[in-house]
Nucleic acid binder design. Structure first.
Lengths: 334, 334
DNA sequence: CTGAAAGCGCTTACAG
DNA sequence: CTGAAAGCGCTTACAG
């Protein structure tokens, strides 16, 4: 069974390809096609199950109704949830999503952008990697809508949507201090992206503002992408060598590794040790005792991203850059 | 900056479009293009940063190097992890993935297939919904490689890769019985897909084989897609109205809701209540006490799916259907 | 109110 | 060893 083309429909309906095309694209009125012809053609389309070839359409029009979504790692629950929300919202507006994971690797991210370019995606949603500045600038020069999210890039003028990582981190430390904690550790990663450095800055600033000293030995920077066993070893060493009465984990997967360590060394969470994890995870509510977390408003982030993107897509010209900073919420669970 | 076309390259190199095309597609040797011309053209391509327009290529060749991946819900960690593994493996072989979530909705699934069709994806990987049989049959008739995974469809002849849900479920119940449990509950969903019914059958069969009676009131079928609060209420009712000393949760998200209930009604997991969750989740290892789980070998499933797909993609003709059933493993954690 | 024709950027059978 | 030309399936400016 050969798939049908617009020509087949035109032949069947005894009209020109042009007429069929106008009808398919809802321009029948505007082009004053007669009611009778519209009905006839629509009926044939309906009955035959004809679907326009989007590839041909894209080639001709230069756009695709596809939005490229580039995240760090789709299997991380934060990104998986954001991706799903964005997918839903985009879908309702007639856009499809192609996603891919960068694994925090510049080369992979660049390849992805090139692939998306050659597929003529209409817009980009990117949780960027350092080193991608030039590529993003080129997209913007090409007049493509680009929204960065989760983390910003210092040297690039682009729209950005993200949580206020600095203040969420600051508040977390404040809450430890209010509980009388003094030996406050931070377990974070070594990737040099804004959302991670902000969390670090918030930690440091809060300590200093409350008259505590910042001690390097209480900050553990885990190498990104290393296997979990090594991460667990390093965290174990931290707890064995330092006196710690509170700890902020800068990502949810680090917190999960950290909780495994605490369980294995039988360190009780509670009065003697307070814990906050950045980015919620099902495991934290369930944990005994419940683990306090910083929650980013996923729904609001996804909605803002899509709104910004759609407004750019409809107004041909790129709007002035907007940075939308959304507050994150500290959920205390014990 | 206008994007370059093959014509621009041809003009710059002072050769025909045909020659450039042969070189780009690695057919230079075969078409005996001279070494000098190859070098010259490659140099120009390199310097100009020219990337062939994949849309035009797809229109011409009828394929896209894209694989469509249709899952139930990309934000579920099982699917997110499988998607990521498949993405990695496909990427290495030069294929990209477009994914989308069906939300267990036939209409949405059909729309997705249509969208993928009109984008000329080369192959389909589908965790199907009941009611999709006809659509899948049409794909196969169109000679498109299709791999079903996670769940099979009874009335359709397609390649399938999935875990042995029946036997994993059976073993779980066996392990309860070995611990002397007699009042064994099952919390499952009401969706009528093979992997869920198999888990139910395994439960029932094990009970009967060991001389226990199957009691309907110990099986709770949660409506798919209902909000978590209702799920929690129903599970709470089950535990309040029945005497239960062991429970198998048929999905990881049901187990998470279930554990919240047990926590809230202060029912201790251990000697008086055994728990097994189907599909692992970070929360289960971390839970105190650790929750036993059935683990599907994600890596192996993803690898098998890709292998089957690629072998179909390369051998023009569709291979006879294969069903690859991979054993799942019961991990005891307490 | 409707149609013929150009063109989007490729690939490839055919010719030389 | 290389090129001119048809054609994939659309959209749209132009003509009538």
């Amino acid at each position: 069974m050969k798939t049908l083309s617009i020509k087949d429909i035109a032949v069947k309906a005894n009209v020109s390809i042009t007429t069929v095309s106008f009808i398919i694209n809802g321009k029948a009125k505007e082009k004053s096609i007669s009611e009778a012809v519209i009905k006839k053609v629509e009926k044939i389309i309906e009955e035959s199950g004809y679907k326009p070839n989007q590839i041909a359409r894209s080639l001709r029009t230069g756009n695709s109704n596809i939005i490229g979504l580039i995240v760090e790692d789709i299997s991380n629950s934060f990104f998986a949830k954001i991706a799903r929300l964005i997918e839903d919202k985009a879908y309702k507006r007639g856009y499809k999503i192609i996603y891919s994971s960068t694994e925090n690797n510049v080369e992979k991210a660049q390849e992805l952008i090139n692939m998306f370019k050659s597929r003529k995606v209409d817009a980009y949603i990117i949780s960027p990697v350092k080193g991608l500045e030039e590529d993003i600038r080129m997209l913007i020069n090409d007049n493509k809508p680009v929204i960065l999210f989760d983390r910003n890039l210092r040297d690039v003028q682009a729209n950005y949507v993200g949580a206020n990582h600095f203040s969420a981190s600051y508040q977390s430390i404040e809450s430890f201090i209010a509980q009388g904690k003094r030996n406050i550790a931070l377990v974070t990663t070594d990737i040099d992206v804004q959302q991670i450095t902000e969390r670090f800055e918030g930690y440091k600033k809060a300590l200093l503002d409350y008259g505590l000293t910042y001690r390097e030995e209480l900050v553990l920077k885990i190498h990104f992408n290393q296997n979990e066993a090594s991460t667990i070893d390093e965290i174990k060493m931290l707890f064995n060598s330092e006196k710690i009465d509170a700890v902020l984990f800068a990502t949810n997967y680090l917190a999960i590794s950290g909780l495994k360590v605490l369980k294995s060394i039988k360190k009780k969470i509670g009065a003697e040790l307070s814990v906050i994890a950045y980015d919620d995870h099902e495991a934290f509510e369930l944990h005994t005792p419940g683990i306090s977390t910083v929650q980013q408003p996923l729904e609001e982030i996804a909605e803002t991203v899509i709104k910004l993107l759609l407004s750019q897509l409809s107004s041909k010209s790129i709007l002035p850059n907007q940075e939308v900073i959304i507050p994150a919420t500290l959920i205390i669970r014990n």
